[in-house]
Design a protein around this nucleic acid. Structure first.
Lengths: 210, 210
DNA sequence: CAAGCTTTGTAACAATTGTTACTGTATTGC
DNA sequence: GCAATACAGTAACAATTGTTACAAAGCTTG
């Protein structure tokens, strides 16, 4: 495990901290689609992502949901951070977008490392900042863009995250992520296909134009 | 100045930190409507709010805007925090919602206090958390609510923040905050008035039902 | 108080998004 | 292969929100 951590995090953390992570962290391989965090649950570990991607959604009480952002290599979940620090329930949902490797850190270490390691503090602050900015960008999309542009942005983000132009998903799943209905997504995807921007197949969408 | 700081922050910070704040902070009284932060500007001070309220908006490049949240006594601006720490441009706009008293802290102290004082670290983390949660709540509103419910929520928040049932503002101003058009707001307000929830006057709205 | 500005009310219409319903076509499991 | 199921295409319609235009009422200033 130490090899993977070292590869991805040695430029961020000092050796001593890397060693501690290695001591107390648990290495995990998560398959695509696995639900890491359920809304309303308590969180006892904090994930450090080594490879892959995690989709973070806002999960409503009534089952409504909406994509907030993706986490990638080098990221951690700010909501998890604050839930850990303040021992609150999660207000979000997290699902492995691709097969993902990560290290779970027990929350007790959070406070300790925050006072002990400057690099850890910077990492945590930087994570908070990134997530806040991404959340605000999500607000931009919802507030300022029409559904067709939001859809296009979503497709582009998906291709970026998964490093392929072919997105394996259903119209219904996209509708969940963007909090709209399947019919709306099908309609708009068809429009994008007519413009030559995507090619539609069953269970997959090929993004032609970037 | 030290008296005001002590009153509001002594339960949060240890004496030594309070003394430092008193040394390096600048006390300011800001009139209602004053623009504290412009989008695209660099921030050199971090505000600690003593009394009053500050409205924080997302400011788009094209002049589009949208209310993110209000800051009150005991709050600080997380975007400012991260802009300070990372020396980035602000991506937001901040306006005094009411007459406001605050203390400006030079950003150089941020890093220093973060390693020196546990209470400061907790304050900063807690601020980040609050702002992240509020931002996500804003997403809830935009994504899951219709404009009439968003308007009602907005009115209730305004009365809470300014501690009065009478809101002095124009329909146009509300439209800016909710990123819609004046006509839409007038229409919905009229509907609320017919339901007996508000009473409309020129330049002010009285919220009757809570 | 008259002219000019700001604010609000309202109608008519357009655009976008949401909903329902039904079809056809793949895929899966027996 | 056949039935059941999941997925996608499409039409018709409803609801919400946005836009334009204009009138009326209130405030401000000379």
């Amino acid at each position: 495990m130490i090899k993977e951590i070292k590869n991805k995090y040695s430029h961020l953390f000092e050796d001593e901290l890397l060693e501690e992570i290695n001591q107390v962290g648990t290495f995990k391989e998560i398959p695509e689609g696995f639900e890491l965090i359920k809304p309303g649950s308590y969180i006892k570990f904090m994930p450090l992502i080594i490879s892959g991607a995690i989709k973070v959604l806002r999960g409503d009480h009534d089952g409504d949901e909406l994509l907030l952002y993706f986490l990638e290599q080098g990221d951690t979940c700010a909501m998890t951070l604050s839930c850990c620090l303040r021992h609150h329930k999660s207000e979000i949902k997290a699902i492995a977008e691709t097969d993902t490797k990560l290290v779970m850190i027990p929350i007790e270490k959070m406070e300790e490392w925050t006072s002990k390691y400057k690099s850890w503090r910077n990492f945590v602050f930087s994570s908070y900042h990134k997530r806040l900015v991404e959340t605000i960008e999500t607000i931009d999309s919802i507030a300022f863009l029409n559904m067709d542009d939001r859809l296009l942005k979503y497709l582009k983000e998906k291709t970026k995250i998964s490093h392929t132009k072919i997105i394996n998903t259903t119209h219904q799943q996209i509708a969940y992520d963007l909090h709209t209905s399947r019919v709306v997504i099908s309609r708009l995807l068809k429009k994008l296909e007519k413009k030559g921007i995507v090619k539609l197949n069953r269970n997959n969408i090929e993004v032609l134009e970037m």
